[in-house]
């Protein structure tokens, strides 16, 4: 895990404050921003991958069965996937408190 913001002493920074763990932003839970979340109806899904390719947050992945599901750790709930789905298989539903 990357050291959190409060922990880093100046001596622990890499030279030039270079970041040496590629892609460690995946530790950051951007899913906390979400107020609505996508729910996929696999009966309607034609497994085209439209939702996957248009997700700005790389938060949709293909399951072993070839369906697609959102990774709620990252999904910000923008609704692009539901809006672009050619078979309207995705519905955005309110997050419950």
């Amino acid at each position: 895990m990357t050291k959190t913001r409060q922990d880093l002493a100046w001596q622990e920074l890499e030279i030039g404050a270079t970041l040496i763990t590629p892609g460690n932003s995946c530790e950051y839970k951007s899913g906390d921003w979400r107020s609505i979340r996508p729910v996929v109806d696999n009966k309607k899904c034609v497994r085209c991958g439209t939702c996957y390719i248009f997700c700005p947050d790389a938060a949709i992945h293909e399951t072993e069965e070839g369906f697609f599901e959102a990774d709620l750790y990252y999904c910000k709930g923008c609704g692009i996937c539901a809006n672009e789905c050619p078979t309207q298989a995705i519905e955005m539903v309110e997050e419950e408190e």
Partner: peptide, 28 residues
């Protein structure tokens, strides 16, 4: 050099120094 830009060892140079890390970066 200690760190260089090369695909075999991807590093990020020149990231954003938020207030919680900027002063440490300056002392460093």
């Amino acid at each position: 050099p200690i760190h260089t830009l090369h695909p075999d060892r991807p590093v990020t140079m020149g990231g954003v120094g938020m207030p919680y890390v900027f002063s440490e970066a300056k002392v460093a």
